[in-house]
Design a protein around this nucleic acid. Structure first.
Lengths: 338, 338
DNA sequence: TTGTACGCGTTATCAG
DNA sequence: CTGATAACGCGTACAA
C-alpha cells in the first residue's frame, strides 16, 4: 500500500504470488499469460479493488486515454449538448473527455491547449478554424492529433468535421428571399475571433447581393449571442423608419430575443415581421411561434468527431474531413410576403 | 527531449544551467531560490514552452490538481451553466475540472466515480444526496473529499452546498395559493433516483395540504425534464373536465412545454391558466409570457462549491455545508384569481 | 541557495 | 510463459 492507501500493482502481484510484470500483462496483453495464473491475478485484483494509477500509467505508457475539448462556453446550449454527445461516444471506447472553455478568447484558448497537453491528452478537439497561426504551429510542433468541429472549410489544411456555416446561412437567406422578402435585416453574432459568426453573416450578405439586395447598417448588426442583446438589437431594427419585414438571426438565442422585442413592440410574428434563427436548439421549439431555423445535426457531428479523433490518436496519421449537411426546419416564424 | 518531444524538467535545467531540483523549486517554492537564477530558469521555461508533465507530477506528488464532477447531463442548461461557473472558479486556482455524466442512473454514477478516482482526482462533486449506501461507503473508504451540490439537507451527514428544494417549492406553492388559486396541478420531474424532483413535488404537496388542498392524480404527473413531455402532460391537464387554474412545473423546461400546450389549446397565459417554473434559466425569460419561476443563484452556488472542494482537498478535513437562498422571480405567467 | 539521489506506479525490454 | 530491471518526469529529503 502507498501513502494514499490505494492498492498498487505491487500489492496485487504479492497477493497473487507473481511479479508485477505478469500483473501488468494480465491487464494489457491477456493472451500472453497462462490461464491459471490469469485467474489468480484477477482474483487478487478483485479482492483488493485495484484500479491502475493514472499517473503511473501516463508516465510509463505516454498515453492517457483522454481527449480534450476546448469550447467557447458551456452556457451556449449548442456546445453543451455537443459535448454531451462527444462524451457519450468517447466513453464507449473507454476514453475520458476533458473539457475546457475559452470564452471566445483566442489567448485563453491557447492557454487551455497548453494545459490540456500538459495533462497528456491523446487528442484535441477545437471549435472553428480561425485562430492565431502560432497556435497551429504549436499544435503541429507538438504532433498532437487534433480536429476542428463546427466548421467545414476547404481553406483549412486541418481535419474538420462540421458544416458549412456560409452555405447554411446562404441557404436560409435564399429561403427568406424566395418567400418574397426584400427588406431583410440580420442580427449576427460577434465576429471577433468567431469564424462561424462571420461566415453566417457573409452567407446572408452574399445571397442578398445575388438578388440585388444589400446587407448594411443599420440593417446589419452584431451582438453577443444572448437573448437580451438579441432583443435590444431587434428593438432598434423594429423602430426604424422602414423596419425590415424579416430578421435573420445568427443563432436561435438571438432569435428568441428578437421575438421578445417584436412582442414588446406589439407586433405579431410572423404577421408583422418574420424572424428566423440558426442551430435548432430546444429553445427554437419552445418559443411562440416556433422558430424557422437551420437544423444542425449535432449528434451526428459529435459521433463523427469522436470516431475520427480516436482514429487519429491510434494511428497517429491524418484523416479525411467530414462535412455534415444542415437543413432548414420550417416552423412558423416566417411567412410569405405577397 | 523525450519520446513525445515535449520538453521536460531536465531540458529546462540543462538550458538554464541548473539542476532539475532548482527548476522544480522555481515552480513550487519560488521564495527558496535566488532571484537571478529564477529569472534564468523562467527564461528557459519560456523559451522551451515547458509545461509540467501530468503523469510525472501526479506520481511524485500524489496530487493531480483535478477535481471531478458528475452531473446527470449537460443537456439540461441548469447543469451546463453550473459547470461553466465551477470550471471558471476552479481554473482560477489552477485546477482542472473533469466532467462525467450519469444520465440520472445511480449505477452509471458509481461507475463514473470509479473512473474519476482512477484518474486521481483530488476531490469530487456530485449532484443531490440520494444514492446507494455502497457508493457513500466506497467514497469514505477511499477517503476522497467530496461534496454534494444542488441540494441542502440536514439529513445528509455529508458536506453539501445548494438550496432546499423542498422549501423553495413549498414557497412557490404558497405564493400561487396566496394569489387565490385552489385548483393547482403539478408537472414534476421523474423522481426515480432524483431527490431534487421528489422534494419539489413534496414541497408543493405540503403547502397545498396546509391549505386544505390535496395534490393527487390526475393533477399530479411526473414526466422527464423535456419540453415535449411537459407539453404532453399539460395538454392532458388542460383537457380535464375541471382543468387546473395554475400549473406548477418541476423546472422551466417543463413549464415552457406547458406554455406551448396552453397555446396550442387556444388558451392564454396567464388569463386562462397560470404556469410557473423552477430554476430560472434563460429559457424562462425567453418564452412569452415570461415565466414566474424560482430563481436559483447558480453562480454563487458554483463559486462556493469550488471554494469548499479546494479547501477540503487541501486540508483533508471536513467543512461545513452552505445553504443558498432561492427567491421567486415574478414575470407574467401567474395571475391572481379573484 | 543549490545539487544529488531516490521513490512514486506503471510499461516494456530482455533474459530465462 | 514469466521475472528482473530499466525507463518515464517530477518532488523532496538530505547534503553540500
Amino acid at each position: 500500500m502507498n501513502t494514499s492507501n490505494l492498492p498498487t500493482l505491487d500489492d496485487v502481484a504479492r497477493l497473487a504470488g507473481v511479479s508485477t510484470a505478469t500483473v501488468s500483462r494480465c491487464l494489457n496483453l491477456p493472451d500472453q499469460v497462462r490461464h491459471t495464473t490469469k485467474t489468480r491475478v484477477e482474483a487478487a485484483i478483485a479482492e483488493l479493488g485495484y484500479t491502475p494509477h493514472f499517473g503511473g500509467l501516463a508516465l510509463a505508457s505516454n498515453r492517457t486515454n483522454t481527449v480534450g475539448a476546448i469550447i467557447p462556453t458551456m452556457e451556449n446550449a449548442i456546445f453543451a449538448r455537443g459535448l454531451q454527445v462527444l462524451q457519450e461516444e468517447l466513453s464507449l471506447s473507454g476514453i475520458t473527455l476533458l473539457v475546457a472553455t475559452s470564452l471566445y478568447d483566442p489567448e485563453k484558448e491557447a492557454k487551455q491547449i497548453r494545459a490540456l497537453l500538459g495533462r497528456g491528452v491523446d487528442g484535441l478537439i477545437l471549435i472553428g478554424h480561425e485562430r492565431p497561426q502560432e497556435t497551429y504551429q504549436f499544435l503541429t510542433d507538438r504532433r498532437v492529433p487534433f480536429l476542428l468541429m463546427w466548421t467545414s472549410t476547404t481553406d483549412s489544411p486541418y481535419c474538420n468535421v462540421g458544416f458549412d456555416n456560409h452555405q447554411a446561412a446562404y441557404d436560409m437567406a435564399m429561403h427568406v428571399i424566395l418567400r418574397g422578402h426584400r427588406q431583410i435585416a440580420m442580427i449576427g453574432g460577434t465576429t471577433k475571433g468567431n469564424d462561424r459568426a462571420r461566415e453566417r453573416i457573409k452567407g446572408v450578405s452574399n445571397a442578398m447581393k445575388q438578388n440585388g439586395l444589400k446587407l448594411q447598417a443599420p440593417y446589419l448588426v452584431e451582438t453577443e449571442y444572448t437573448i437580451d442583446e438579441g432583443r435590444a438589437a431587434a428593438q432598434k431594427l423594429l423602430a426604424l423608419h422602414t423596419p425590415p419585414t424579416a430578421i435573420i438571426c445568427g443563432n436561435d438565442v438571438q432569435a428568441a430575443g428578437a421575438l421578445k422585442a417584436a412582442h414588446q413592440a406589439g407586433l405579431k410574428v410572423p404577421d408583422d415581421v418574420s424572424i428566423v434563427g440558426f442551430d435548432d436548439i430546444d429553445l427554437a421549439e419552445a418559443v411562440e411561434p416556433g422558430l424557422t431555423t437551420v437544423h444542425v445535426p449535432h449528434r451526428r457531428m459529435g459521433r463523427e468527431a469522436a470516431r475520427l479523433i480516436i482514429q487519429m490518436a491510434r494511428n497517429r496519421a491524418p484523416v479525411e474531413s467530414i462535412r455534415i449537411d444542415t437543413n432548414i426546419v420550417e416552423r412558423s416564424s416566417l411567412r410569405d410576403i405577397s
